[in-house]
């Protein structure tokens, strides 16, 4: 176990853990938009800034990708952190002024009206959708496109992503809710990626429950299940 302090309180983490993870486990509040325990830390949003004192030197750093280290002392809400964090929130709010999560953060941190031209974008480029698609789902259907101020997320070449199984994991992790899923009896669409897939109906109850293409993918990556396992919906499987 690795022992260090957060705001003066001794905490412990394991090798391979990061400071944010341990802080959250121990009940500390650190805002974060691009971190999710299911995927690797990325360090993009810069909200989870903390001050780490190590070997006589103190520096501002993101906690999500800072590995736990023996004996370091972490501060989570110094004036310096607040000053930087407020500007980060202001920058993100100017980009996506309509995102509820940013409005809430702005209120919490007393960030007023952004001093920059408002953009009315809806994506903060946290990259959670891209990472969950690649690391968890494993289909790598979307990616970052362009760089600098032209950066965005989308399917490669911005054409219908052929590997997307419309599972909705990206929809679930998106902090600004800018990726929408629409579903009818016959098809499911991930609106942002322009991906529409026909739905399969359960052999037992007759309800449509998942896209054909998704179930085919699950069939390919799983082993030891009966041939017709993916023909029935989860509810009927339990019954």
């Amino acid at each position: 176990m690795i022992t260090f302090t957060i705001d003066g309180i001794e905490v412990q983490g394991e090798q391979g853990q990061n400071v944010l993870e341990v802080a959250l486990d121990n009940g500390f509040t650190i805002p974060h938009l691009c971190y999710h325990e299911a995927v690797k830390p990325y360090g993009a949003c810069r909200l989870c800034l903390v001050e780490v004192a190590k070997g006589g030197r103190t520096r501002l750093t993101t906690s999500c990708n800072y590995p736990v280290m023996e004996g370091v002392s972490v501060q989570t809400n110094t004036e310096k952190i607040m000053r930087a964090r407020r500007m980060i929130i202001e920058l993100l709010l100017a980009r996506c002024p309509d995102a509820p999560i940013l409005k809430d953060l702005a209120e919490e941190y007393s960030v007023g009206q952004p001093r920059f031209t408002l953009d009315h974008d809806d994506c903060i480029l946290c990259g959670l959708c891209e990472r969950v698609c690649r690391e968890v789902v494993g289909v790598d259907a979307i990616t970052f496109l362009g760089r600098g101020s032209n950066r965005k997320v989308g399917p490669p070449l911005e054409i219908n992503p052929k590997t997307c199984i419309a599972c909705g994991a990206c929809v679930y992790v998106c902090p600004t809710n800018c990726i929408k899923l629409k579903e009818t009896e016959t098809e499911r669409t991930i609106v942002r990626w322009g991906r529409t897939l026909p739905m399969k109906t359960c052999k037992v109850c007759g309800r449509s429950f998942a896209p054909w293409f998704q179930l085919d993918y699950f069939g390919k990556i799983t082993e030891g299940l009966s041939k017709d396992f993916w023909d029935t919906c989860p509810d009927c499987r339990k019954a």
């Binding site: 990325y42 360090g43 993009a44 949003c45 810069r46 909200l47 930087a84 500007m87 980060i88 920058l91 993100l92 100017a94 980009r95 920059f116 903060i124 480029l125 990259g127 970052f144 362009g146 760089r147 600098g148 101020s149 032209n150 950066r151």
Partner: peptide, 17 residues
Amino acid sequence: KDESCGKCTSCREGTRR
């Protein structure tokens, strides 16, 4: 602003602003 990779908020939004 064009050559920032665009990954982190402070650089991407900062250079642009």
